[in-house]
């Protein structure tokens, strides 16, 4: 166990925000979900007792008849904002006094460092480059992430859970977003920062980052593994496999979307366009972890890892 290496990675000035996120993100996930489960208990109570549902104020916060439903912005909100500004300023001051912003040698195009790292918030995309070609990892995926985030309000036809924390009423939405944000985005930033060492080689936490390490990876294309060698053959075979993946995952998602009576109710509210949009984005998003597993899983069993599935003269997937 190389504790020094762990310490070095965690305290590199530009890694401090990521080390902070290691605590902040789980904390706020817990903080939000705790309120969601609290609300869920209230929802269960109200559903079991229609009489109570008519009279209850329907919030997890205490409320007594006669209390004002609204409070004055001044001072009740603005004092909090002021306090928040003061606290953030203090944190920023202390952080800036104790820790210097990194500055390396002057830029030198003739001296390539062994770890050319993207800024930490883009390290997740850099990690994606291991599994996909740059046009997918660096251009297509970021574009799809941005568009995918923007279509969320238009494809989520579930009218419940508008303005309060809940898990029970929005299971698929919450799990889907948490998977995308916590696992694929924040998780990949963590992997790219703390696991990937020099040469973008995988070092488990505690392993020494060896600048001379070499890994001879045996990566094969799927068509080669099954013995297809001709160019048109690879094109057709790869296209079929990718198409099959879309159909199979789409079917699984379809089953998930109609798993209970409640989910079928939401499903019936979807227009065809909304349904297809959900499927397209969800299947593509799941493609990332699938491709990661295809790379890592065979290696664990001593088999050649899979590099490309669809090989064509113009692009590879």
């Amino acid at each position: 166990m190389d504790w020094h290496q762990i310490w070095e990675n965690a305290t590199k000035p530009d890694n401090i925000p990521i080390a902070a996120m290691l605590f902040l993100v789980p904390f706020y996930t817990w903080y939000g979900l705790r309120q969601a489960f609290h609300t869920d208990r209230l929802i269960a109570e109200l559903e079991a007792d229609p009489q109570k549902a008519k009279t209850h104020h329907r919030k997890i916060f205490p409320f007594k008849p006669g209390w004002e439903r609204e409070v004055h912005t001044w001072p009740y909100l603005m004092r909090i904002e002021f306090l928040a500004a003061v606290i953030v300023t203090i944190i920023l001051m202390i952080w800036s006094i104790t820790l210097n912003a990194p500055l390396e040698e002057p830029a030198n195009p003739n001296l390539t460092p062994n770890e050319s790292r993207a800024p930490w918030y883009f390290v997740g995309l850099q990690e994606m480059l291991v599994y996909f070609d740059p046009w997918i990892a660096g251009v297509l995926m970021p574009t799809l992430i941005i568009i995918g985030l923007m279509v969320i309000p238009y494809i989520d036809t579930n009218p419940l859970g508008n303005g309060y924390y809940t898990f029970r009423q929005r299971r698929i939405a919450i799990l889907g977003f948490c998977f995308g944000f916590l696992v694929l985005w924040v998780g990949m930033v963590m992997v790219g920062t703390f696991i990937r060492g020099p040469g973008w080689i995988w070092f488990w936490p505690g392993e020494t980052w060896d600048h001379n390490a070499l890994v001879f990876e045996v990566n094969r294309d799927l068509p080669d593994l099954v013995g297809i060698t001709s160019t048109p053959g690879k094109f057709i075979f790869g296209g079929l496999v990718v198409g099959l993946y879309y159909l199979a995952t789409g079917y699984a998602l379809h089953r998930l979307m109609s798993i209970t009576e409640f989910h079928r109710k939401i499903y019936r509210r979807l227009s065809l366009l909304q349904y297809l949009t959900i499927q397209a984005f969800a299947i593509t998003m799941i493609g990332l972890p699938v491709k990661m597993l295809l790379r890592h899983l065979p290696r664990a069993f001593g088999l050649p890892a899979i590099k490309y599935i669809w090989v064509t003269p113009w692009f590879n997937v």
Partner: peptide, 12 residues
């Protein structure tokens, strides 16, 4: 963004 998602505040 995470909070806005968790409270469903992006809805109509």
């Amino acid at each position: 963004m995470f909070r806005v998602f968790l409270t469903g505040s992006y809805k109509r």
